[in-house]
Amino acid sequence: MFGILGIVVIFVMVFGGYLLAGGKMGIILASLPFEMMIIGGAAVGAFLIANDISAIKHAAKDIGKVFKGPKWKQSDYRDLLCLLFELIRLARQSPVAVEPHVENPEESEIFGRYPKIQKDREAVDLICDTLRSMSMNYDDPHQVEEVLDKRMEATLHHAMHSSHALQTVADGLPALGIVAAVLGVIKTMGSIDQPPEVLGKLIGGALVGTFLGVFLAYGLVGPMAGKVGAVVEEDRHFYQLIREVLVANLHNHPANICIEVGRQNTPDHMRPSFSDVEEALRNAKSQAA
């Protein structure tokens, strides 16, 4: 929503201000297809050179985050706390009973109560791998915490690739705009014997290249790269909550204390209230019963 609104504001303010100042869109519209072909085509080509096919697909998919925003909402954090509570409580009651849920989360009744989390491979793997390691007596809190930190750091590095790739394109666009402008100047020099009104249009068309490169870099692609990175960082808190709760569990805190540790480590704007979590946990207990 805000992504679309931002793009609309950019175009209205830039071109609206230009028109109100007495500018004419004729020269820009006449030059735009060719300048866009040069600048946009070169930017896409450079992007293809710099990235492999998986990174290209990942970046194309991540552009949607500019308009969709973070994947995880406040209700999802509450559901995650309930899911972890059920798994921890069951694991402490009977380590054998939790194994089917950990080994086959796709068919788990507990995971099935939280379908959005169940469909997220990273969250499910993070939970199941950690609980599985506990059943194998790999339960040193400090070692597990270190493993989780390294895993999440690697995941974040991979997730941020799209943002870095888009930012690299944004950094190169002004220079590509200069390339287009220089080509326009070369074209103008070939018509140096023409009258001033013709040369004026040719020079104006050449300058469209410089304008377009800077406009795309700082008005569209750069902000998109920043937004993708911000959304990735925002969604990372969801997986960080898993880490906090499972590490607290390894310290043998009561299950409700583990959940409270996770709740308090949730970002303010996503943190469910204590009463909401308590009510959700009661509902989870009744469903489990």
Rank of each mutant, 00 (worst) to 15 (best):
Y239W: 11
R113P: 00
K285G: 00
P70I: 02
I186H: 07
A42R: 08
V169A: 02
H253S: 10
M152H: 07
V144T: 07
V228G: 11
A180R: 08
E260I: 09
S191I: 00
D193M: 11
I186R: 06
A284S: 14
Q287M: 13
L131I: 05
S191P: 00
K24I: 00
K201L: 03
A230D: 15
G23W: 12
E122T: 08
R78M: 13
A248L: 02
V185D: 10
W72P: 05
F85M: 05
F215H: 00
T210M: 09
D125E: 15
I242H: 10
G226H: 10
G26T: 14
V96H: 08
V214N: 00
P33Y: 09
C128F: 09
K57L: 15
P70K: 07
P70C: 03
L166Q: 06
E35L: 00
K61V: 12
Y138F: 12
S31P: 02
R132T: 08
E122H: 05
H251D: 06
R243C: 01
V124W: 01
M224N: 03
F85A: 10
P272D: 07
S286T: 14
N256C: 06
D52W: 11
A217G: 01
L83F: 05
E109G: 14
Q264G: 06
L212I: 13
S31A: 15
L173T: 08
P100M: 12
L173S: 06
L126P: 00
K68P: 04
V221H: 04
A289G: 10
S275P: 02
G69N: 09
L90M: 15
E244T: 12
V179P: 08
G262N: 06
F15T: 03
G209A: 12
K65G: 01
P115K: 10
K65W: 06
D149I: 11
A43W: 12
K61P: 04
K65H: 09
R282H: 08
G219T: 00
T168V: 04
S133K: 14
A123C: 03
K61A: 15
M36S: 15
P141I: 04
V102L: 15
Q93V: 05
Y239N: 03
E244W: 04
G262F: 05
